[in-house]
C-alpha cells in the first residue's frame, strides 16, 4: 500500500484527467450546440468565437422551412414505428424461446443473430429494384419495414436474455394456480420484464434513428428523414453552419438523452452476450 498523501495526489490527477478526457470527447458536440445558438455571421469567423450573443434565430430558420416537419416526422415514424412492430413480433418469439427451450433454441437464436451480419450494401440493388416495382421508393413505410427487419434479431435476442432472468418458479406458481397464458403474460411476465422491454425499445429506436445507409439510398424527398435533410448541408461550404448546427442539435438531442438512459443495457444488446 502506498502512503496516503501519495494516493490523494493520484486521486486528484485521476479526477482532473477523467473530466478533461470526457470533455475532449464531448467537445465536438458542445461546439455544435454553441454554434447552433450563434448568428450565421458569428459561426463563421477566424479565430472561432467563444463569446457571442446567443440567438434562437437558427432554430427559427430551421423550423420555418416548411419541410423540416416532414423530415422529423419521417424519422419518428421510421424509428418508433419499426421499434413497435419489432417488439410485437419479437415478444412472443422470445417468450417461447426462453420458457420452452428445445434442442433447436440455440440454433434459432444464433441464426437470427447471423442475419444481422449481412452487409446492407450487398443487397442494395435487389432491395432498390424491389422498392421501385412496389412503389415503396421514397415512401417512409418502406424504410420502416427495413428497420423492423434490421432490429428484429436484436429485439428477440435482448428480450430472450431478459426473460431468462425471470425465475421460472414464479411462472410455475402462477400456472399451478391455474393462470392461463393471457393472465400469465399480464400479471407476471410483462411487469417483471418491463425494464428489459423498455431498454430493448430504446436500443432499437437509437439504431433506427441513426441509420443512414438505407435512408440516404432509398428515400429522397417525400420519405426523406433527418439524415437526408442534414446531409443536404454538405455542399453549403461555411454558409449555413449555424443552421446546420441547429438542425443537428434538434436531430441528435433526443437520441443522446435516450442513449444516456439506456447506456447500461447497450452492451448486452450490441454484443449479443459475447461480453459478460
Amino acid at each position: 500500500m502506498t502512503a496516503p498523501h501519495h494516493s490523494r495526489a493520484r486521486r486528484w490527477i485521476i479526477t482532473v484527467v477523467g473530466h478533461l478526457v470526457a470533455l475532449l470527447m464531448f467537445f465536438p458536440i458542445l461546439w455544435m450546440v454553441l454554434t447552433a445558438f450563434k448568428a450565421e455571421i458569428d459561426a463563421f469567423t477566424t479565430p472561432p468565437e467563444l463569446v457571442f450573443e446567443p440567438t434562437l434565430r437558427s432554430f427559427r430558420d430551421v423550423f420555418a422551412r416548411g419541410d423540416y416537419g416532414t423530415f422529423a416526422l419521417n424519422s419518428i415514424i421510421a424509428a418508433v414505428g419499426s421499434t413497435a412492430i419489432a417488439l410485437v413480433v419479437a415478444i412472443p418469439a422470445a417468450y417461447r424461446l426462453a420458457f420452452f427451450p428445445t434442442a433447436r433454441t440455440q440454433f434459432t437464436l444464433l441464426w437470427m443473430i447471423s442475419t444481422k451480419m449481412m452487409p446492407a450494401v450487398g443487397v442494395l440493388l435487389p432491395v432498390y429494384i424491389f422498392f421501385q416495382w412496389t412503389g415503396l421508393l421514397d415512401q417512409v413505410v418502406g424504410l420502416m419495414m427495413i428497420y423492423t427487419l434490421m432490429n428484429l434479431p436484436l429485439a428477440v435476442w435482448m428480450l430472450y436474455t431478459y426473460f431468462r432472468e425471470i425465475p421460472y418458479e414464479m411462472l410455475e406458481a402462477a400456472r399451478v394456480d391455474g393462470a392461463g397464458l393471457g393472465s400469465e403474460l399480464r400479471h407476471i411476465l410483462i411487469p417483471t420484464a418491463m425494464p428489459g422491454v423498455a431498454s430493448t425499445a430504446l436500443l432499437c429506436t437509437i439504431l433506427a434513428w441513426n441509420e443512414s445507409f438505407w435512408s440516404l439510398q432509398l428515400m429522397n424527398v417525400q420519405g426523406a428523414t433527418l439524415a437526408t435533410f442534414i446531409s443536404s448541408f454538405k455542399a453549403a461550404e461555411g454558409m449555413f453552419w449555424a443552421k446546420m448546427s441547429a438542425a443537428s442539435v434538434l436531430a441528435i438531442g433526443p437520441i443522446i438523452a435516450i442513449g444516456w438512459l439506456a447506456q447500461k443495457q447497450l452492451v448486452r444488446g450490441l454484443t449479443f452476450g459475447a461480453v459478460k
Binding site: H19, F26, P28, A227, I230, K234, A251, G259
Partner: peptide, 29 residues
C-alpha cells in the same frame, strides 16, 4: 472519482451521434 458518472455520460455521447451529423461537424467546424 467525484463526478465520474457525469464524465462517463459525456464520454459515451459520440456513439449516439448520427453519422451524417458527426461527419459534417468534423468536416466543417
Amino acid at each position: 472519482f467525484p463526478g465520474r458518472s457525469f464524465a462517463r455520460l459525456l464520454a459515451i455521447s459520440p456513439f449516439f451521434v448520427m453519422p451524417v451529423v458527426a461527419a459534417l461537424v468534423w468536416k466543417n467546424m
